[in-house]
Design a protein around this nucleic acid. Sequence first.
DNA 1: GCCAACGTTGGC
DNA 2: GCCAACGTTGGC
Length: 172
Amino acid sequence: MHKKNTISPNIWLMKTEPDVFSFYDLMNAPGRTACWEGVRNYQARNFMRDRFQIGDVALIYHSSTKIPGIAGIGRVKSKAYPDPTALNPSSEYCCELSMKRKESQWVMVDIEAVSPLPELIPLTLLRSHKGLAKMALLQRGQRLSIQPVAADEYQIILEIIEKSRFFGFASE
DNA sequence: GCCAACGTTGGC
DNA sequence: GCCAACGTTGGC
């Protein structure tokens, strides 16, 4: 039985548009680490603020692109801290409410690239796995940019990665 | 580019 | 606090 404790890391799925910032950009960032700025959804923010722990796993997902899917694995390197772009008038992430209150209403975390996948796991492949049917990402109309991933779902994803390492997705 | 489905806003 | 209108997300 899975027992929740402070040792086992949480697993998160974090969406990004690769045209804006891809997993490969993260790989090439100094220290392979970047701050995950620009999250502007309360539920996603609250996950970072209340639930993110250093050492948590982050599955980096590419959205709004030709082949959406999981591109790489990252790790949470910091606790949540205020996202300063909310207070930057020249940033596309500038936030009116934050400006009015003179305090960022948004948070971010530092994410480190751990390893790219042998190949991107397409959304279509995730959909084809029965064991992932309840995964948040796959639910109709799901748009949340930061989602918790269940331990058993993560295990299935790791198995998919292991298979693709040797055989590619042709084996699926 | 379309559009379904969602989150947010604001009038009442 | 309701809910219609609007804006956004994101697969296709």
